[in-house]
Computed example of a mutant assay.
Amino acid sequence: MKTKTIRTPYDYHLLVQQLEEHGKTVYGPAFKIEEIDRPVVLKLLAYFLQDEEVAQSEGLDLRKGVFLTGKIGCGKTSLITLMRPLSADAYMPHMVSCREISFEFSKIGYDIISRYSRNAFFPYTDTPRVHCFDDLGVEQPVNHWGNSCNVMAEILLSRYDLWISNQMITHVTTNLNSQELEETYGNRLRSRMRGMFNLIAFNSDSIDKRI
């Protein structure tokens, strides 16, 4: 059986080694990329390097963002953080905690939604900023002057519209499964997520890196 030759300028075996070394520098000498996590790492490398051939072979659409899901402690946040230096400036994600966004809403109100949606452009340009919303689902319901709002749902719905109109890329990390997402944010948002994200999931047997 003939297999398709994938053309790529990158040595992924070497990249994984370098990523692990960088991880040791950032997170300590115990950092290690486990064998079970390598399929996820390969997908993330292909995506953030914008390697079209490998991304296509991995079923990734480079016009969409990354929806990275896995159980608590599997290393979602650390891997996205380590991918940032590999990205071109326009694609480098700004990491922001969903929990911090909920706290900001309680202080300053609905302007926080604009900050991460229609105002999320580089100054004096029409180039949208890439944001990675970390730990979607851990934020608490909050009020601002008695007004309740599902802040992350509103931000993601707005960014979906901006993805359609301005190619605004969004990334998310979460511990939630599809049913929990729908229960928390509603079917309207979940259906749009299918359009704006590449789903990348850790293996359920991936170990807790915090131990």
Rank of each mutant, 00 (worst) to 15 (best):
T77G: 05
S78N: 13
L79P: 09
L79F: 13
I80G: 04
I80R: 08
I80Q: 08
T81Q: 14
T81S: 15
L82F: 06
M83L: 08
M83G: 04
M83I: 06
R84S: 07
R84N: 04
R84G: 04
P85M: 04
P85T: 03
P85Y: 06
P85L: 04
S87P: 03
S87I: 01
S87E: 06
S87N: 07
D89T: 11
A90H: 14
A90Y: 14
A90I: 12
Y91H: 13
Y91Q: 14
M92E: 11
M92V: 04
H94P: 05
H94W: 12
H94S: 14
M95C: 10
M95F: 09
M95G: 09
M95D: 13
V96I: 13
V96W: 01
V96K: 10
V96T: 10
S97F: 00
S97K: 03
S97C: 04
S97V: 00
R99N: 05
R99F: 02
E100M: 09
E100A: 11
I101R: 02
I101N: 01
I101S: 00
S102W: 03
S102N: 12
F103M: 07
F103H: 05
E104S: 06
E104K: 02
F105L: 00
F105V: 00
S106D: 07
S106E: 12
K107P: 01
K107W: 02
K107T: 07
I108S: 09
I108T: 09
I108Q: 13
G109I: 00
Y110T: 12
Y110V: 11
Y110H: 14
D111M: 09
D111Q: 15
I112G: 00
I112A: 00
I112R: 01
I113R: 03
I113G: 00
I113K: 05
S114C: 07
S114D: 12
S114A: 13
S114G: 11
S114R: 15
R115Q: 11
R115M: 06
Y116Q: 05
Y116V: 04
S117F: 10
S117V: 05
R118W: 12
R118P: 06
N119Q: 14
N119L: 10
A120C: 13
F121Y: 15
F122V: 01
P123R: 11
P123N: 11
Y124K: 12
Y124I: 06
Y124N: 13
T125W: 11
D126Y: 11
D126P: 04
D126K: 15
T127H: 11
P128Y: 12
R129V: 09
R129L: 12
R129D: 03
V130F: 09
H131V: 06
H131G: 08
C132I: 03
C132M: 07
C132F: 02
D135V: 00
L136Y: 03
L136A: 03
L136W: 02
G137D: 05
G137V: 01
G137C: 03
G137Y: 01
V138I: 11
V138G: 02
V138K: 11
V138N: 10
